[in-house]
Design a protein around this nucleic acid. Structure first.
Lengths: 173, 173
DNA sequence: GAATGTACTGGACGAACGTCCAAATCGCCA
DNA sequence: TGGCGATTTGGACGTTCGTCCAGTACATTC
């Protein structure tokens, strides 16, 4: 793996671990196993690394969404698969941190909003095929609800799949 | 208002505006209109200000929840009131930032978890009175979903009450 | 083997950070 | 008025920050 990619992977890890505002050039270089100067050799700024890393993780997650959804049939299984898929990507904190950072950076906001639109579109198409009412609106709310569940789950371990799926499943009828 | 309270108010504002990790002693003192040294006269550390400010905002929101819920009758109105109430408290970003900070600080995590339990309990009691099935689980998921909606709404203005309430309302039947 | 260009190192730079503290200021009681 | 404790100030401290850059290492080309 190239040094550039190692930096991006390390950035995604550190955003989730420490928060967007607490990732520094030196810990980033350390985690990637390179000298501290290499960050500004491959990227214009620290913010550029964080932005590219977080957007890459989001895009990967959305790109994998169709095959995740198509591997299940029932809405309940889809919900469970959705939660598991987003949970797996280096911790839910990365997505939440990126959303929050996007509210404070116009360039990032536009990119995240675009990815979110694609996420909703894929989800809405799957819902429409299964005759869920108002698939577009349902997809938008469901995407938000799943993010909220991931956030709360970080603090409250009892928000398990067994609790979430039956309740959120009512949205899909 | 005391200087101490002005510092707490300024801290809540700045956490929402800049993020937990980007609030410094100097901008905090500036926003409160005091000298930079006064922060460590009233508080042990910068983290102590942020912690007390964010927990105070959370507790206030939960304390106001019963009267918010009791002022409406239908589940749809309750959802709308819930969204509006949490939205009003100096921006939804404060709550999300606090949740994320709590995942990285054990003392904060315990306090936030306790407040979340109270929030769920109040909501569950209201749901039980209206014969919503599995009120405890529904309250837990609904609290998470509302937080997620607030987060997504910051990036996507089309997640209006008119879209959210009908979809999330299906959870309450 | 010399030259060239890419990739990387480690340290320098000024700025901003959290924390602390001596001095200045305030309100209040003797 | 004088004195005292509580409050506030602005700056000092050592550290860490983002960024930059002279120098090194290495592969590739003549």
């Amino acid at each position: 793996m190239t040094v550039r990619q190692r930096l991006l992977d390390a950035a995604a890890e550190l955003i989730a671990e420490r928060g967007w505002g607490a990732v520094s050039t030196r810990v980033l270089a350390d985690r990637a196993g390179v000298g501290s100067g290499v960050v500004h050799y491959h990227f214009d700024s620290l913010q550029a690394v964080l932005t590219e890393a977080s957007l890459g993780a989001l895009r990967t997650a959305v790109d994998e969404l169709p095959q995740v959804l198509d591997s299940v049939d029932t809405p309940a299984d889809a919900l469970a698969a959705l939660l598991a898929a987003l949970d797996g990507h280096g911790g839910q904190e990365l997505f939440i941190e990126t959303f929050l950072a996007a509210t404070r950076n116009d360039e990032l906001r536009g990119a995240v909003a675009e990815i979110l639109i694609r996420f909703r579109a894929v989800l809405a198409a799957w819902l429409a095929e299964r005759d869920v009412p108002t698939p577009v609106e349902t997809a938008a709310v469901l995407a938000a609800a799943v993010d909220g569940v991931l956030l709360h789950r970080a603090l409250s371990a009892d928000l398990t799949r067994e609790v979430v799926v039956p309740v959120l499943g009512r949205v899909l009828r």
